[in-house]
Amino acid sequence: MTPKNIIFAIVAVGLLIIAPLGQGNYITYVLCSWLLFSIAAMGLNLTLGYAGQVSLAQASFMGIGAYITALMTLNGIHWILAMPCAVAATFFVGLVLGYPALRVQHHFLAFVTLAFNTLVFLAFRNEEWLTGGSFGLVGMPRPDFWVFSTMKQLPFYYFTLVCFLISAAAFWWIVHSPWGRAFKALRENPIRANSVGVDTRRMTLLAFAIGSAFGGLAGALMTPLVQFIEPGSFALVHSLKLLLMVVVGGAGFFFGPILGAAIVILMPEVLRFTEGYYLIIYALLVIVLMVYSPTGLMGLGGKVITRFRPQREVRKDMVQGAQL
């Protein structure tokens, strides 16, 4: 980390701390939701943006995490114990979903994960004895940490923020560790990666497992935030939404998915005056963005910067970008 990065990180954290002050409950809720979707999108960014493995199943991992947390906390187990279970479970399910990626790639992998997401959705909807079926589960308690209760919206925001910062730090560490480089090598050229000694099999599985675990954590946070979960919140559309967050923000960039989640979650509030046309405007913007800047908003920002400061080098590992 250069000093510039550290100053930037401190300013960003400071802004996140003061963001909800003086805001109503609803805005605080939206900010919480942004933070937790950022966590899920970060996970997908690891799988898709860094390791180049297409996954259309991130919402199902949020679902698995959310249901495990809900069932455990409803049975009186504290969130702090339920969350690791949710993360561990999604890690292992993600590992299993990684196996098809060893055999097939690109569009085939997209369809396997798409089918997986729908299967998980059907299980949530049909196994009423466990998941409450299409009525979902209600009344999950928010965690209470003895001196710090998250029952109110503002404390819950800070609780989510802490989880978000820990995840972001973990993510930063992963992508800047040798593993991160191995993931990128896997994306750019698997054969070459293999020949220089990267265990591509293990890295592929890990990319899925770690990415899914982030989804599980996001789900574990969603349960106490919304206090109501139902299968529809984890349907295929939401996986596509997460995919849009990652790609619109900029796949393979650290801040890409956070920016993408901000656009998907916060923009409806900004564009509230357009009423029902919000999604239409959003879809049009995504299409236009993809035409002009396939690397997303981060890539667009990069383009603008290179225009004014032409000496800036384009990141060589992003020349090719994530491919399907």
């Binding site: 297409v54 690109h106 569009h107 997209a110 596509l240 995919l243 849009l244 790609v247 619109v248 796949a251 029902g276 046309y277 999604l279 239409i280 959003y282 879809a283 049009l284 995504v286 299409i287 993809m290 035409v291 396939p294 090719q320 970008g321 994530a322 491919q323 399907l324």
Partner: peptide, 26 residues
């Protein structure tokens, strides 16, 4: 978009699907 590879095009068609669906709804 064809020169950008498949992923941006996939995203664009997802967005197009959303656009058509919402347009019909609205």
């Amino acid at each position: 978009m064809i020169s950008h590879g498949t992923l941006p095009l996939v995203i664009a068609t997802i967005a197009l699907g959303l656009l058509l669906k919402e347009a019909v709804k609205e």
